[in-house]
C-alpha cells in the first residue's frame, strides 16, 4: 500500500491559502487525487540530484531591462467598467478583516 503523501487537513489548509472552499465530498476526492499525483511524483526519489542545480527558467538570458521612460497609460474608462464594484474612481471591496500582512 502506498503512503498517504497529503492529509485531508493539509488539503483544507492549502484550500484556505488559495482562497477556495471545499465541500466534504470535494475534500476527500481532492485528497485522494492530489495524493495520487504526489505519489507519482515520488518516482524522482530514484534520482541522485544532490549536485544538480535547480533550473527555474529555460532561458540562460540575464539583465533584460527597460529605460526609465514613460509609456502610455490607461484611462479609467478603459478598465473601471469591467470592475465588479467601483466608487469615486476606485475599486470597491467589502470590509477587510485584519490588517494588511
Amino acid at each position: 500500500m502506498m503512503s498517504e503523501p497529503i492529509s485531508p487537513e493539509e488539503v483544507a489548509h492549502v484550500a484556505y491559502l488559495a482562497r477556495l472552499r471545499l465541500t466534504e465530498d470535494e475534500l476527500s476526492r481532492f485528497t485522494e487525487q492530489l495524493g495520487a499525483i504526489l505519489n507519482h511524483a515520488e518516482d524522482v526519489e530514484a534520482l541522485e540530484l544532490d549536485d544538480t542545480e535547480p533550473m527555474s527558467h529555460p532561458l540562460p538570458i540575464e539583465n533584460t531591462m527597460r529605460e526609465d521612460t514613460p509609456s502610455p497609460m490607461l484611462k479609467p474608462s478603459d478598465f473601471l467598467p469591467e470592475a465588479p464594484a467601483v466608487e469615486d474612481g476606485r475599486f470597491l471591496v467589502p470590509k477587510i478583516l485584519g490588517e494588511e500582512p
Binding site: A83, P84, A85, V93, P94, K95, L97
Partner: peptide, 23 residues
C-alpha cells in the same frame, strides 16, 4: 479574486468574497 475584473460573488467581508468568487 473578484476585485478588479471578471466574476464577483459577494460575501460578508473581503475574504469571504474572495473565497466565494474563486470557489
Amino acid at each position: 479574486d473578484g476585485v478588479r475584473y471578471g466574476l464577483r460573488i459577494d460575501g460578508a467581508n473581503l475574504n469571504e468574497m474572495n473565497v466565494n468568487t474563486r470557489t
